[in-house]
Design a protein around this nucleic acid. Sequence first.
DNA 1: GATTCAATTGCAAACGTTTGCGTAATTTTT
DNA 2: AAAAATTACGCAAACGTTTGCAATTGAATC
Lengths: 342, 342
Amino acid sequence: MGNTVSIKDIARKFKCAPSTISRALNDHPMINIDTRKTIQEYANKVGYQKNTISLSLLNQCSNTLGVIIPSISHYHETAIIEGLEAILQPAGYLLNICLTNESHALEKEYLDRLVANRVDAICISLSQETFDHSLNEHIDKAISRSLPIIFMDRFYHALDVDRVITDDFKGAFMATEHLIQMGCQRIAHLHGPKGITVSQQRFKGYEACLKKYGRDVDDQLVKQVMFSPESGLAATKSLLDQKTKPDGIFAVNDEVCFGAMKIIQEKNYKIPEEIALVGFDDIPLAAFAPIALSSVSRQSKKIGEQSAHLFLSKMNGMHQHQQFALEPELIIRESSQRNHCS
Amino acid sequence: MGNTVSIKDIARKFKCAPSTISRALNDHPMINIDTRKTIQEYANKVGYQKNTISLSLLNQCSNTLGVIIPSISHYHETAIIEGLEAILQPAGYLLNICLTNESHALEKEYLDRLVANRVDAICISLSQETFDHSLNEHIDKAISRSLPIIFMDRFYHALDVDRVITDDFKGAFMATEHLIQMGCQRIAHLHGPKGITVSQQRFKGYEACLKKYGRDVDDQLVKQVMFSPESGLAATKSLLDQKTKPDGIFAVNDEVCFGAMKIIQEKNYKIPEEIALVGFDDIPLAAFAPIALSSVSRQSKKIGEQSAHLFLSKMNGMHQHQQFALEPELIIRESSQRNHCS
DNA sequence: GATTCAATTGCAAACGTTTGCGTAATTTTT
DNA sequence: AAAAATTACGCAAACGTTTGCAATTGAATC
């Protein structure tokens, strides 16, 4: 505020030009070694701190990455951010994190603000509203001003973009196949919110796996849920209340499984003997669920790290677009491990 | 990048001064209404986006809040950030979020970088290392340049600072008192990492409550843990392996309780009849623990909101320091609810 | 003593925007 | 018709830093 000292201030003190101070502080050999030291000591004493803003203006880059993400209330998203930070902190970047709350309007607003702030690139996980209605103009506009945009988790209609995702299809396939191998005959799926890529892909993986084993998707066994335990509980309740009950459930994420477990245990079904359960994300509490929860790990932190690397290569002039799909990993725990297959 | 259009570019196009363009875009009445419209339309057409960086330089404020926080892997921290965003998004601010991973070196590094970026203020939750060794010079330096610093959750040695915390002492007191009222005789405490304010305060609340009821702290019943379920499991195991076993446990947070429950159930103790359990934070999964978990809610989101309001009032010239301690709330669920007190 | 060279330092422009003040041009008032 | 007022726009400085180029100084060479 008031007491910040600038290069000009120091120049006045030493009765010399700002350029001399600048060079001295940057240890430029052009400046006499003694003058350099004297100036550096003085700057240090008065607590001089370089004003990065002026540099951003001059160099047309802000050393900041914009991150637009629907929420950070789940492990997956926080792990992504941790991954981004882990790579970008040493590289000297800061993160501008924006939560859209799945709102298209907010996403647009934040995008504009980040552009106005001249972030060097944007990592974005599209909001559900943007998805549902294919409201892409704001993204297209950003891309057209050649601002690097890296999509995380959720697809974007255009193909030639930068993207880092997990192979959700494959993960879902693995989970479903595992349930089949455990002897499950009626495998239900708790389907995530419509329109979101991960929901769609996981359903498709589930569907494809059933097909591979000569089964069809039974609409009665597919219920739609939000990403919350409450929603998982309600959906599972309706599954258990109908005639065709499942003997295996693959849910769109782990939180949903916590809700499912609650009601399954309340109704006195045995996990995994009567109903086997597999989730997605492998959250830290998965192993500490009422019955240790099997889950598909999607290497959340690695998504952040990979996105960060992609960003850095963009900063180094890499112009081609790249797409990464990380390998999911099935973690088998008690909730689905049947020792004697039926 | 290359194709960003500036006010100067537009000025060239219209063969007029940049000041005219600036005023036109800001709808300044000094400019002829028709010229204004024409210019605005053109700017819109070519996708002009105000460069906020130059404004930051000019106005000496960046409309950005720096947030320094040890981690975002727990509900509490993500809720704080959601609270900050909820208030600061409408106010036109962006968040620079920095994860220190409890490292003093990183905290210092980030603080410098945020100062260099001239953030308008900093909300900080001190790292454990900073705490353990009272390494406060970097904070003092930042304060001395009259940069508003708002402390969240963790105390700072100086008294006259801005601060928003939960009354952890009170929360711990309530939890312990509740266990006493449920008839617990040997109440253990899973003590958080040393040096961290929340750990200390919660222990003190536990201690004070025992004292109120004429009991002393039994060192054998106090185990130190990290904020993870694994750590909670290990500590509880050692509790159950010793002669003086607890019949009630108050843990420093909910994750720890998940670990505790796991081992308690494995060893076939009944919750809450034989061992009652109360956690802290009231995470979203608390109600979906193996036994629905009682917990002290610390209104995490409200800490973020309150901090944001404090920040905004600082921006409006409020110079006095303010301290807020939010009221904790005890949420009683199955893990501690004994119907017939012994 | 004139010339060349190296060692230091200063000048000025640039990045994009805002804003007080000056200055035309036009209209209104006397 | 002259004076005053209004309207509309331009000029230039400012924010803090970097950097190519010019300028100054002093010493070394011819």
